[in-house]
């Protein structure tokens, strides 16, 4: 369609790591179907590394592509490394996103963080200082 980069379209056409992890160690749920985007990120942790990452997403092309991209970026990383992945990193890895999609559909890094926080909570691990879910600090979806 021209509005998305080839990289975005590649991840949209062939999304990586779609699905649930039945015995996930952490699940992150971000977004809202009312806004048009909803992402669930599942993680499997081994030692301090993310052994597996999967997703399920309801949303536009950008939402699906960022979800797919984050699973590739996070897999095999340590928890500390994965927590450092920002929305900008995901957008950059996709060769950029249209400005209008930078906020509402770019929730994947938040989804991953939220899955890791869920894992930490379940295991009584104190999250490091300063972790914030970026989309929680702004009105990403203003509906009439």
């Amino acid at each position: 369609m021209g509005m998305y980069t080839e990289k975005v379209m590649d991840h949209f056409r062939h999304p990586r790591n779609v699905g649930e992890i039945k015995d996930a160690d952490g699940i992150g749920k971000v977004g809202n179907p009312v806004c048009g985007d909803l992402m669930w990120i599942y993680i499997k942790v081994k030692g301090d590394r993310l052994e597996d990452v999967k997703f399920k997403t309801f949303g536009c092309g950008a939402a699906i592509a960022t979800s797919s991209m984050i699973t590739e970026m996070a897999k095999g990383k340590t928890i500390d490394e994965a927590l450092k992945i920002s929305r900008q990193d995901v957008a950059d890895a996709l060769g950029g996103l249209p400005a209008i999609k930078m906020h509402c559909s770019n929730l994947a890094s938040d989804g991953l963080k939220s899955a890791i926080l869920d894992y930490m909570k379940r295991n009584g691990i104190k999250p490091p200082e300063g972790i914030k879910i970026e989309s929680e600090h702004e009105d990403v979806c203003e509906t009439g």
Partner: peptide, 30 residues
């Protein structure tokens, strides 16, 4: 499911269509 991803998927099959979804609009409202 969401409409813009439907429209993109149809385009991959060579079919041009539109959607009333928020993501398809400039205002981000359905």
């Amino acid at each position: 499911i969401e409409g813009e991803s439907l429209v993109l998927s149809l385009d991959m099959e060579g079919i041009a269509a539109s959607s009333g979804s928020a993501c398809s609009s400039k205002t981000l409202e359905p």
